[in-house]
Design a protein around this nucleic acid. Structure first.
Length: 141
DNA sequence: GCCAACGTTGGC
DNA sequence: GCCAACGTTGGC
């Protein structure tokens, strides 16, 4: 099983929106970046888990966990068919408290030095997370 | 609102 | 294929 981190601006789609969706499942649509697209299309497999990250908001950080329930298929919200892809994700659980970016940064120079989302200038909305980092982040909950 | 970072576009 | 210009992201 692989682990990921998915970014979303809660103003457009938050973990609460996912919690309120039918079967707590939604297509992760709107990704318009080739690198991220490739991961959605080729690498994310059914059963993989991902952190749901809230960006560009009052309290940036990880809000909970989702799992991939349907593998890559074309993004219906895209103008160009077949060019952009989505996966379906289902809510596993919402954290009681957001694991804040600020809290993650405390460990940036040691335990979480490989966590892509902490890297300077990082803008990728889909990034892989190692099992080691996954477990460490969960220990911060 | 600012601005650094970076992906994409398009002229050459 | 280079690279400047431009648009977007996202933390602060």
């Amino acid at each position: 099983m692989n682990y990921w981190l998915l970014k979303s601006e809660p103003d457009s789609f938050s973990i609460d929106d996912l919690a309120a969706a039918t079967r707590q499942t939604a297509a992760w649509d709107g990704v318009r970046n080739f690198q991220a697209r490739n991961m959605l299309r080729d690498s994310m497999k059914k059963g993989d888990q991902a952190f749901f990250y809230h960006s560009s908001c009052e309290l940036p950080g990880i809000a909970g966990i989702v799992s991939v329930v349907k593998e890559g298929y074309p993004d219906k919200t895209a103008d160009e068919e077949q060019r952009w892809f989505v996966v379906d994700v289902k809510l596993v659980r919402k954290f009681k408290h957001i694991i804040a970016l600020e809290q993650l940064r405390v460990h940036q120079s040691k335990a979480l030095r490989d966590l892509v989302v902490l890297r300077r200038g990082n803008r990728l909305s889909v990034t892989p997370v190692t099992k080691k980092d996954w477990l460490f982040v969960l220990s911060l909950e």
